[in-house]
Design a protein around this nucleic acid. Sequence first.
DNA 1: TGTCCACTGGAAGGGAGGGCTT
DNA 2: AAGCCCTCCCTTCCAGTGGACA
Length: 400
Amino acid sequence: MDKRNPLVKNKRILQSSYIPEQLPHREEQIKEIVEIVAPSLTKDKPSNILIIGKTGTGKTAVVKYIGKELKKADDNEENCSFIYINCEVVDTPYGILYNIGNQIIKDETKSIPFTGWSLDRVFSELTKYVDKENKIYIIVLDEIDRSFQKNGDDIFYFLTTINEVLEQSKVSIIGISNNPKFTDFLDPKIKSRLGEEKIIFPPYNTVQLEDILKDRSEEAFEKGVLSPGVISYCAALSAQDMGDARRALDLLRIASDIAERNNDSIITEAHVKYAKNKIELDAVSEVVRTLTSQSKTVLMSIVINTENDNPTMNTGDVFATYKHISEILETSTLTQRRVAGLISELDMMGIIHARVKSFGRAGRTREIELGSKEVMDLIKSDVLFKKLKNYKNVKQTTLI
DNA sequence: TGTCCACTGGAAGGGAGGGCTT
DNA sequence: AAGCCCTCCCTTCCAGTGGACA
């Protein structure tokens, strides 16, 4: 675990979870948010804030940074508490309330169980505890659009109306979203409450990314280990990629790992190039690896069709193959409706390409293509499909 | 211009599995 | 032990649809 990389002083600094002392090119946004949030130090309720910006534009870092500063300015959290929830990690209404509750409730014997209670009960228990001390609670809901997608707006309704029931304390919400349009689908009442203040985080440009990388790399690396063009190269790659600073830092970190493993004393552009490929491949294999076995079987059906000279298949083709191989594998067979749903999930994950297309009289269906060759190799090597080694032959004799 | 295909996509609901409450 | 509740995964049902074809 603690094997030291001779190139790196402090690797933690390159991790996206690290909150630096300075957040370059976000001074304006910090100032805006601080102005809104500052009244909480005198127990006045700040407006709710909605923060919008693409991945890696510093939204989470800025908010966490402000939370840290707020804590410093407020002795023992006497006037306000800062609560952070990531709605992608905790994605059910119960889970969100459970997490908020247990960050507020200090007495462990009174904490909310992670399952078992009705939502109503969690609501009322939470309200009771929030109102116990006269305080401002700032609740940050990161990736708020994820929760809305899955659960609708019940939970936002609760959180934005809770102040009407509270007698002492007040709750302020900071919502963070990648998707600027997500509020369009909210109930108008909730929409206006949630978005009392709106702050936009624009993507970083190449120059700004370079500044960020320079700052961090000075702290993270030993002197002289970065070859001159490396930082601008990482910045340029990530600027193409929607100005994602997280991506840029990942590139640098992985590049340094690769250099270390090769016992190279200098990190070069070649390492970065290699890192880029590695990141992309890792992302895909992680997704494929963690699919449920049914999703894997659907994906396998798409692979088989591709290999059998049917590179653009439709839902019906996939389902036929799916049915057949799940018989061979002796697993349960899902309905076509469900398989169609799994296909559209795979599409959303970016593993396959599926677009709805109409063939006139021949009906309307999805035209499905495999995303990449890597996916094919990954899924074929899955232990689940050992039995299908000679599927091609099987198919010729028994299918249709 | 209307028909009709092969689905899509939404909704409702079931049931298993986790766990609390009485 | 029986009765709840929430979540996840799934089925069933059905209205809706883009566009080739008659």
